[in-house]
Simulated assay, not measured.
Amino acid sequence: MNYQVAKKTFASWIKSGITPFEILNALRKLQVVGINLDQEDDPQVIFESINSTGVALTNSDLIRNFLLMDDHNQDQLFDTYWIPIETLLRRNNSNNDLDQFFRQYLITKKNSTIMERKVYFEFVDLFKKQRFTHESALQELKTYAKIYASFLYPDEAKYNDQIRDYLRELKQLGQTTCYPFLLHVFKDFQDQRIDEKTLTSVLSLITTYLIRRSICNVSTNSLNTLFAYLYARVFKVAQNKEKYYEAINKYLFSQKGKNEIPADEVVKYALKHSNLYQNQELCRILLLDVENGDSKEKLATQNLTIEHIMP
């Protein structure tokens, strides 16, 4: 994998005008530093100390090293778990989606908001409190990564067309704040605690909630907190899982103030008077829904642009 990255990087440098001779000269200036550790030294602590003085690694880099660095079964864990996780979430040589996954995963597990700069430390804390082994932690991460990949790439998701449509709309809206809550819900579906109909109903509710707020241009500032706590608050009463969708629906419709669902009259007014044209992804979703309705032959969405419509 490192070879492929290096090859691609060198090729891009040469294409930009840098000569092979200049690249070779630069490589000759590289230095490799070896650090000998005593038996009582913790390699992870040494690694963290060195990392804190140089260019900071990403959260996914730190978590990978924490889970793999001092494990006697490092190669097997890397091939069985880490490579599949990276394949699912790390595309275009960017760690961004992978880093976001770890943050959303931790929000799901801790049912609380987590700042980006605290992700690694929160992961280590979770690892210790849950009494994970390196393998059990990687195993769980792989399970959640498969779910999270369906949020990022709905067209590749192995769900029915209706579920993929909702995931596609959520991605178009850019409403990633709901992902920690949906990780809970999709995990319940995967564990057969809910059926496909319930999963679809919950997705419809969340999508409708977010679309209505977008139409009315309601601030999204409170959504991080709402979705971080939503699952824990709805199901703190165990019996609510017997009425899964109904319990979530009731909780959302009971919200007041900044988290309430905009009423029909407010939505109708916004549709008539708000400048929706500025949010072209929202316009695309609404117009396609009007166009397609319940038709089995859906209008293709590729290469469509939003244009002015005569009254």
Rank of each mutant, 00 (worst) to 15 (best):
D99K: 08
L106H: 02
L126C: 06
Q100I: 09
L126R: 04
Y105T: 05
S112E: 11
V124H: 00
Q104K: 12
I114N: 02
D99W: 04
I114A: 02
Q100P: 01
N111C: 09
I107T: 10
F123S: 04
Q100G: 13
K118W: 07
I107P: 00
M115I: 11
N111S: 15
F123L: 04
E122C: 09
D97C: 11
D97A: 13
E116S: 11
N111Y: 07
Y120R: 07
S112M: 14
F101G: 02
E116V: 10
M115A: 12
Q100Y: 14
F102L: 15
F127P: 02
D97S: 12
K129P: 00
I107K: 05
D97M: 11
N111L: 06
M115G: 00
K109C: 06
F127R: 05
F121N: 10
Q104C: 11
K110Q: 12
K129M: 04
F121L: 13
F102M: 05
K128L: 09
V119L: 07
F127Q: 01
Q130N: 14
L98F: 13
T113W: 04
V124L: 08
K110D: 01
S112A: 13
L106V: 04
F121V: 13
I114G: 00
N111R: 10
V124G: 01
Y105H: 05
Q104M: 08
K128P: 00
T113G: 02
T108G: 04
D99T: 12
D125E: 12
L126T: 14
K109L: 08
F101H: 00
R117Y: 02
K118C: 04
F127L: 11
K118M: 11
S112T: 15
Q104G: 03
D125N: 15
K110H: 07
K118D: 10
V124T: 11
Q104I: 06
K128D: 03
E122R: 12
R117V: 11
F127C: 07
F102S: 03
K128R: 12
F127M: 04
R103G: 07
Q104F: 14
Y105S: 01
K129L: 13
M115R: 14
L126I: 08
K129I: 05
D99Y: 05
I107Q: 01
Q104W: 06
E122T: 14
T108A: 07
I107C: 03
T108Y: 08
